[in-house]
Nucleic acid binder design. Sequence first.
DNA 1: ATAATTTAAATTGTGCACAACTTAATTGTT
DNA 2: AACAATTAAGTTGTGCACAATTTAAATTAT
Lengths: 150, 150
Amino acid sequence: MERSLRLEHQICFQLYTASKELTRLYRPILAPLNLTYSQYLVMLVLWEEDGIDLRRLGSRLTLDSGTLSPLIKRLIQIGYVEKSRAIDDERKIVVYLTERGNTLREQASDVPLQVSGMLNIDEATYVAYMEMLTDIKTRLHDFGERQREQ
Amino acid sequence: MERSLRLEHQICFQLYTASKELTRLYRPILAPLNLTYSQYLVMLVLWEEDGIDLRRLGSRLTLDSGTLSPLIKRLIQIGYVEKSRAIDDERKIVVYLTERGNTLREQASDVPLQVSGMLNIDEATYVAYMEMLTDIKTRLHDFGERQREQ
DNA sequence: ATAATTTAAATTGTGCACAACTTAATTGTT
DNA sequence: AACAATTAAGTTGTGCACAATTTAAATTAT
């Protein structure tokens, strides 16, 4: 186990930079769609679950209302989504795709392929990496559980 | 290769959330040291290379002056570092540890152990994960090289 | 030597990310 | 039914992260 304070030996630092650099790769790809990376993630969720409420959207992306409220406001301004109160629960805000938001899906359909092409990564490696990341998150959640038990 | 638009299948999303959640784990650990996560990364570099110039600091952390200038200003306010112009090149800003900044190193020395304990990860897995993350970054850099060649 | 180019920081502006707080609707309790 | 507790969004404030621009110093070319 690496217990020194050397920057390059910290797994957190490697995760942090890998994430930042991969996000940087997305920027020029998403620019023509007029989306930031975070906005793209929100659109991914909406293309799966149109009419999702803000709370559920936040739990899927691990983002709170402080991040999502202004972000959704910007997506509304661009014209990709709309929001309204839920009929069954007036506290909830439900987010919908507009016509343009739906059309955008087709324009975005080749983004994943473009990115994996840039990464030049084979199927087996890709799967292994996904498993590693899932495992890291599982360990983090397990720790959270252990904490809550005490 | 995952080429669909499903959120959970995107390696970028898994990296992004893993990084965010691991950073969240650091917050309560770093709070007693009066440091944010990014400030902690800067301190890690300074504990390795005291008197580093801002440009080199930025290249080690992949951060530009727009992020580092105000961040260093805050570290100066706290009293952990000081800055001055380089004597050989007046354009360069050199960052130094103060007495307190040096003392902090000992207080921070058990942070990596605390974190790996929370992750509950064994040596072999840790090393494998570090290699994967390094590999992802290598692929990203390789793509950058290929781009520059054209 | 002087002008043009390059380099290093700082600044400005935008958009996350999150903690802390506010407001309003819903649910639970008595 | 009336009150308390909980829940959902929104708001405010702080601190990154980064693009684009500015300012000043150093380097290079002429």
